[in-house]
Each structure stands twice: as structure tokens, then as C-alpha cells.
Design a protein around this nucleic acid. Structure first.
Lengths: 125, 125
DNA sequence: GTATTATTGCAACTAATTCGCATTAAAAAA
DNA sequence: TTTTTTAATGCGAATTAGTTGCAATAATAC
């Protein structure tokens, strides 16, 4: 199951790189200058996640957002999880360089963390 | 827009009180001993949220969960937000008495926090 | 250049949630 | 207690996000 290089993949990756924010499938589609099928966009984004190129955040709107998040990669060795900020005005999710700190009661096994703060971001104020 | 007391409201509140966990509409419906329409359950649950009787958490499954969360009320004066734990095995969300601690960059206005840890809970291990 | 199979597009499908509208029934008013 | 007001409910349809099956296409290996 080796990955192949395709224009589709390049285009979506470019959109994510440029935006530097987490985008929904919808937002990715809007920013593309070529037409790519909805289902394909989802498949590409999920493949990116499998390959650890991106990570997925779910907002309290129930939607999936995908981020390349370069700074996250830098932090990834030390900070596994970080907070995200979803702006109600520009509807993007941003990775904050703020680590998620918690302690769980005995007997609980944490496999993932999804932490999203919602509000108005700096640019939209 | 004054609220009225109805059997429906009582029944749903009872289910939430008994479970002591955050439940999805689906889970609420299953635990009811009377038949209540799906749309109505959503409406009642959302009304509870407006009235601050419950709070809503969104899992990374994108689904809404509602919790009465008595202990939360106790903490509410001091701790506005707390972590939640979603068990992949029993598919419920639990309020943890673990405060959400974070600092956001200047210029960001936080209105809400949705923090969910996912894994296996104590009971399911 | 040919074969292999990952990738894509399309259409249909599912699941969660919401909405419009007519009906029912609390609670307030008479 | 009856009447009136309007919140609450049920039903069905609509919406939205995401997934899936399948046939066609096109990277990459041979």
C-alpha cells in the first residue's frame, strides 16, 4: 500500500501549508484552485493523518478540522497534545502552543486528547 | 417563554440523574421507559443547557453528549471548565474533577472550552 | 511499454441533528 | 371551573457531515 504522488495530494497539501490553520474539508475545497471531489478530499486528508503529516481536531460544532501545524511538529517530542482555538468569526481552528496538562484518576487509560477553546481570535477582534 | 413541567421533561431528567454520566440523545432514548420522539429529546436536552441544568460536550466522534454532572455544579464556582473522559468501550462521557488549565496568547477571547480525553475507563479495563 | 494497484470521481448511503407545522396540553386568566 | 394562551410534542421531511462501493484512471514498478 505504497503512497503515490498525485496533483490532488499536492494541491491539498499546499492549501493546508498556506493556511497554517486547521481547515475543514469544506474550507479546503473552497481554497483549492482545481476541482477535487468531496470524498477524495476526505480520503486524502485522512491519509495525511495516517502518515502523521496532519492531525485531526473535532470542534464543538462536531466537524473535523485538519492541520499540518508545523510548530506542532517541533513541539511534538515534548508536548504530545496542545490546545486548539476555534474562532467563531473566521471558522478556522488554530493550533496554540499551549500544552494540555491533566492528570486522570487511577485506572483510566488515555489514548487521545481533543481540546478546543472557542471564541474570537486576535485577527477577528 | 416560561418553562412548563411535563412528563417528558421529568423522564429525561431522571435518566440523566441516574446515569451520572454524559449521554447522547441515543443513549437517553434507550434508557427511557416511555417512548419520546427523537426531536423532542434533542429539544429538551438543549433547553436544559439553556437553563444551565446540564452542559453539552462534543466527543471526537462528533456527537453531542449531555451531562447533569452534580459534582460539576459543586465545582462550578471555582472551576469553570473540567476535562471529560470518553470511554471507547462503554461509549459514555464522564466528567472528571480535573480542571482545564490554559493560558491563551494576547488578543484571544475564550468563550468556551471543550476538552475530551478518550480511552478506556476504569470500569471497562 | 506493460502490468499492477493506488487514487479518483460519482452516486448512493448513513448517522446526527434540525426544522416546519399541526396538534396537544400546561398554566394563567377569567 | 371553564376559557385562553402559548410552550411542548410528534411526525415527517430536510440538512449536514462523512463514508462506501464500484468502475475508470493514472502513478509507479517491472
Amino acid at each position: 500500500m505504497n503512497r503515490r504522488n498525485t496533483p490532488t495530494k499536492e494541491a491539498i497539501l499546499a492549501v493546508l501549508s498556506n493556511s497554517k490553520k486547521a481547515l475543514s474539508q469544506d474550507a479546503v475545497e473552497k481554497q483549492l484552485n482545481i476541482k477535487i471531489n468531496r470524498a477524495t478530499i476526505y480520503r486524502v486528508l485522512n491519509r495525511f493523518c495516517e502518515d502523521k503529516l496532519t492531525h485531526k481536531i473535532v470542534g464543538e460544532d462536531g466537524k473535523q478540522y485538519f492541520a499540518i501545524c508545523k510548530p506542532c511538529n517541533k513541539l511534538s517530542e515534548t508536548i504530545t497534545h496542545h490546545f486548539h482555538f476555534r474562532c467563531l468569526s473566521c471558522d478556522t481552528i488554530e493550533c496554540l502552543q499551549v500544552p494540555v496538562v491533566y492528570a486522570v484518576p487511577n485506572g483510566y487509560e488515555v489514548k487521545n486528547a481533543n481540546c478546543v477553546l472557542t471564541g474570537i481570535c486576535k485577527n477577528c477582534k
